[in-house]
Amino acid sequence: MNEALTLLSFGEGGWGDTIAFGILVTVSLAIATLPFGLFLGFVIALAKNSSEPSLRLAANIYTTIFRGLPELLTLFLVYFGVQIGIQYGLTMIGVETYVEVNSFVAGMVALAFVFSSYASEAFLSAFRGIPDGQYEGGKALGMSRFKTMRFIILPQLIRLALPALGNLWLILVKETSLVSVIGLADLVREAGIAARVTKEPFLFFGIACLVYLVLAMISSAGLSRVERWTKRGEAAR
């Protein structure tokens, strides 16, 4: 037991700071992905909710692709695909350099694609939960379409979509672990390095699992606060 504590301590001979750095990378990747995923998901949900069939079809194709591919494969497609694409483009215009895509950015892009395709479904079902009268009311008040969306629809939409989006956030935090495969020094990778050096794999991967659990607990607590905040209008009733 004491041995384990020494291994996990900070500073000389301990792996605490390495693990802490890994946690930082994991959390920042998830947080950096979230706004892009949410925005993209919202735009796609708008397209799916449109009355224009071609727009709906285009959005559905996007969702089908990114929900059908394994996340790991999406990650590899983005990581190697973008690299090869940029290299090809540079060679076309006559520049001969070696490009390496940042694994953090590649992970962010791939996870945002996956997140947005699921988030669009969450937003879409929330759109369906808002009655037409809300749009009509906005129109009757002389609000522009943008203003109706911003002040009438969006606040209700967030409230309706939040439980599903909360689940997606928890999934996103877990999916960041895949980025360790393309070399980003996240929690799983740091734990793996520590495990290999100290020959204590069970301890370090166990710690990694526990950290993910703690992250999930913190997220759930945060989400229930956000949920209460979105429902603050209902409290008066």
Binding site: L170, K174, E175, S177, L178, S180, V188, A191, G192, A195, E200, P201, F202, L203, F205, G206, A208, C209, Y212, L213, A216, M217
Partner: peptide, 23 residues
């Protein structure tokens, strides 16, 4: 249920595959 739904499948696989070596 909470453990297996709250941690990534990758970490679980590592925990079992590499972690078994500890025992």
């Amino acid at each position: 249920v909470y453990f297996f739904r709250g941690t990534p499948l990758l970490a679980q696989t590592f925990l079992i595959y590499y972690g078994a070596g500890s025992f």
